[in-house]
C-alpha cells in the first residue's frame, strides 16, 4: 500500500530555523512499523531526516515521537494501526534540537532529583542479599516496567505548561522505590513529591496512561503516591 508521510523538520544548523513539514510517499506493508518507514526514508530518500532509535524493539525507549498526534514508540506503531496518512512530530514539552530529536536533559534531571536507586544503609541479615516476598515484589511490579522513553511526561498537559512539574515518569520511577520493601528513603522521596512541583500538580488527565508503550498504570501510580503522602508515608 502507498503511505503518505508528513514529517516535522527543524534543523537550525542547516538553515531550517523555522519548523516545517516535508512529505514523502512510500510503499509499505500493513505490518510495517513507523520506524521501518523512517528508516526507509533516511536510508533511501532523504538522509537528513533525524530521529533517535537504538534497539528498535520497544525496550530502549529512544524512539518516542508523536505519531498522528499521539505519543508512541515508532518501533511499536504499525501502519495498519495508524493508517496510511501519517504525521510524525517530536514529543512535546522538551526543546527540539533537530527534527524528532529533543533535548532529554530536563527530563533526566527531573528523574534524577527523586533518587532513582535503592537506598538502604543497613547490612543485609545474611550479609549478602535483602530478601523480599512475592507479595512485596508485586507491590511495585508495574512501575518497574518503565523504559524512560518520556512518552508519558511529554503527553502531560501540566508538563507542557509548567517545567517545574516533575512529570509522570519521575513519579513512576519514584513509586518503584517508595513501595519497595528494601528501600529506606521513601520518606525523602515523598517529601520531594509533596512540594509544589510534585504529585499534586497532576490533574488526572490520563494522557500518560494512554501514552505509555509499556502499559503502566501511570495515573494510578501517581494516585498511590498522593495517598502515601497524605497518609503520612508508607510502611514496609
Amino acid at each position: 500500500m502507498l503511505v503518505y508521510l508528513k514529517i516535522y523538520r527543524y534543523n537550525p544548523e542547516a538553515g531550517r530555523n523555522v519548523p516545517s513539514f516535508d512529505t514523502y510517499n512510500i510503499e509499505a506493508e500493513p505490518t510495517d512499523r513507523v520506524l521501518d518507514l523512517l528508516e526507509e526514508i533516511k536510508g533511501h530518500i532523504d538522509g537528513t531526516v533525524s530521529f533517535r532509535r537504538s534497539c528498535a524493539h520497544g525496550v530502549c525507549g529512544s524512539d518516542a515521537m508523536r505519531i498522528n498526534g499521539r505519543n508512541m514508540l515508532a518501533c511499536k506503531a504499525l501502519v495498519k494501526d495508524v493508517g496510511t496518512e501519517i504525521t510524525i512530530e517530536p514529543i512535546l514539552g522538551l526543546p527540539v534540537l533537530k527534527d524528532m530529536i529533543v533535548d532529554m536533559e530536563p527530563f533526566f534531571n527531573s528523574y534524577k532529583s527523586l533518587m532513582p536507586f535503592l537506598i538502604n544503609e543497613d547490612v543485609p541479615a545474611d550479609g549478602k542479599e535483602r530478601l523480599q516476598s512475592p507479595e512485596q515484589r508485586e507491590r511495585f511490579d508495574d512501575t518497574t516496567k518503565c523504559i524512560l522513553c518520556a512518552a508519558c511526561t511529554t503527553s502531560c498537559p501540566v508538563f507542557w505548561s509548567d517545567d517545574q512539574y516533575v512529570g509522570p515518569a519521575t513519579i513512576v520511577n519514584a513509586h518503584r522505590f517508595i513501595f519497595d520493601s528494601r528501600d529506606q528513603a521513601a520518606n525523602k522521596r515523598l517529601e520531594i513529591l509533596a512540594d509544589h512541583g510534585g504529585a499534586f500538580r497532576c490533574r488526572t488527565a490520563f494522557n500518560c496512561t494512554e501514552a505509555c508503550p509499556r502499559e503502566i498504570h501511570v495515573t494510578q501510580a501517581i494516585a498511590e503516591v498522593k495517598n502515601a503522602i497524605t497518609s503520612g508515608g508508607v510502611e514496609h
Binding site: 520518606n187 515523598l190 509533596a194
Partner: peptide, 8 residues
C-alpha cells in the same frame, strides 16, 4: 520501616 511525611 515506617516513614513519616509531615503535611505541608
Amino acid at each position: 520501616m515506617a516513614s513519616q511525611v509531615k503535611p505541608n
